[in-house]
Amino acid sequence: MQAANSHRLTPYLFLAPAGLVLAVALLYPIGYMVYASFLDWNPSQKINEAAFVGLRNYANLLVDPAFRESLWVTIKFASVVVSLEMLLGVGLALLLDRKLRGMTLLRTLFILPMMIAPIVVGLMWRYMYHPTVGTFNRALKGLGLPPVEWLSDSNWALVSIIIADIWQWTPFIFILALAALQSLPKSAMEAARIDGATGWQQILHIKLPLMMPVLIVTCLLRLIDAFKVLEVVLVLTNGGPGLSTEILSLRIARTASEFRELGKAAAMSNYLLLFLMVLTLAMFFYSKATERRAARLRAEAEGAH
């Protein structure tokens, strides 16, 4: 009796510590933030001294030109970065999917940019974009071309952070696409080759459609991460010049620490969170649906035998 009781309790004992930490340090803060978004609150007040203002923060944000500008910059940044990275990453994976002896080393070198702190990535690129001693302007000078104001020209600044992000995250897409390619069924490839399909035909009609489920999940994962980028931009431009590179995460951080409007920052965070939640749920249900379809196809194939 005693033994059976302790056996029934064991799973709860194993789960309790993790559950407790998640509840106290993740779920509670998120709930707290939802509440704080209805307050007019500055960092020197305790939260119960802050005035309740209902939906005012949300309404103000919708007509706040700086917020809308920053939302637009974020969407521009995320969509450009993700589409270019998908294009490059998948292209490279298709190109490099062959028997190569140094492949392991190559993959190791490719993941280095992702492992390094975003702060350090920002540092490296800030040095390379330096107006006089930076690598790019030195190269331009060597070619006899005029220097470019990479970070202080409002047209170039966004391009500069996009280049840095592409450098850091294209390998992520490449690695996932390569893993997807290498797990494709060999039989389909062979059948295509026997039928005389050219390289392009194989890619367009067989490889890409078969990789599609993984590619869509990869794309959404990367999109979610692109909305979280903060440190690289902070080090490179700190949102400037003007508001030209002030992405939403950075605006939230500055609203909280520089403008000291915690309620407004919380409301902004909620907008961002809602948006990301829609993306995440779309991704989850998409991958569930493809899984179910694959299972059904497999069952039908087995039934046919």
Partner: peptide, 21 residues
């Protein structure tokens, strides 16, 4: 997935408030 999507910037305000007060 839902936890992965939470950006650190979103946690900034509540974590600061809770951890300080």
């Amino acid at each position: 997935l839902l936890m992965r999507m939470v950006p650190p910037a979103v946690l900034l305000v509540p974590v600061f408030g809770i951890w300080t007060f």
